[in-house]
Nucleic acid binder design. Structure first.
Length: 216
DNA sequence: ACATTAAGTGATT
DNA sequence: AATCACTTAATGT
């Protein structure tokens, strides 16, 4: 239906109001446009980072891993967002602390870190954007910490499902209880039990490999 | 038809 | 909330 858009057009559409024309031009020429499919891995723990993603559409899931290789979901990066963390990561160790996987099909632009550095001093709009992104990421991280520390498993699960429905723009989540358990760092049995009780409470509808969130 | 994977459940810690 | 053990149900080949 929609005609193919050039990178520049996509940039103008999603970020035009944020950056000044000169910067938009630079971003368009320096960035590498990429389309990724659901489930694709964007970043692995320990992998070297030399680029920062700028999301046009879709959502990226950011995970942490413990010593035994068990995962834990940190947060989602949505369209119009970026991961400024990768910037500081490059300045420091240069290696990723996290794993990033596409939650949905997504379009993004990869920006080389050295360029970002230049833009920081040249463009105040870029500086403001990075700072704001930093703030957003930190807030989300703190929210995750709160969730982990203060909420019970059933509340955590419900929040997780709502978040996931939100970023995918879809109240039906296609996943397995096992996959959910891995994201929340718990066991499948626990997830199955809580999901059942949430269904009885009328908050969900369960199917094989699908969960429909009703209480949005 | 058979094997595999997803989900449900009681009992125990 | 986690783990074990076992069952049932849906799906893939």
């Amino acid at each position: 239906m929609m005609k193919e858009m050039s990178v520049k057009e996509l940039l103008d559409l999603h970020y035009g109001y944020l950056f000044d024309p000169a910067l938009l031009e630079e971003i368009a020429s320096a960035g590498k446009y990429k389309v990724i499919r659901k489930g694709d891995k964007l970043m692995e723990i320990g992998q070297h980072i030399s680029e920062m993603p700028l999301l046009f559409s879709g959502a990226i899931k950011v995970l942490r891993e413990d010593e035994e290789g068990e995962e834990l979901l940190l947060y989602f990066i949505e369209k119009g967002d970026t991961c400024a963390m990768s910037f500081s990561c490059c300045m420091g160790t240069g290696r990723s602390d996290i794993r990033a996987i596409a939650e949905t099909d997504s379009e993004l632009l990869l920006l080389p870190v050295n360029k970002m550095d230049e833009w920081m001093v040249q463009y105040s709009s870029w500086r403001a954007f990075i700072l704001d992104s930093y703030h957003t990421r930190l807030s989300e991280l703190m929210e995750t910490v709160d969730t982990l520390a203060f909420m019970k498993m059933d509340e955590r699960l419900m929040k997780y499902l709502k978040d996931r429905a939100m970023v995918t723009q879809n109240d039906v989540i296609t996943t397995t209880h096992l996959a959910v358990a891995n994201d929340l760092h718990t066991s499948r049995v626990v997830v199955s039990r809580i999901l059942k009780s949430l269904e009885k409470a009328g908050k969900l509808e369960l199917g094989r490999s699908s969960i429909k969130v009703l209480a949005l």
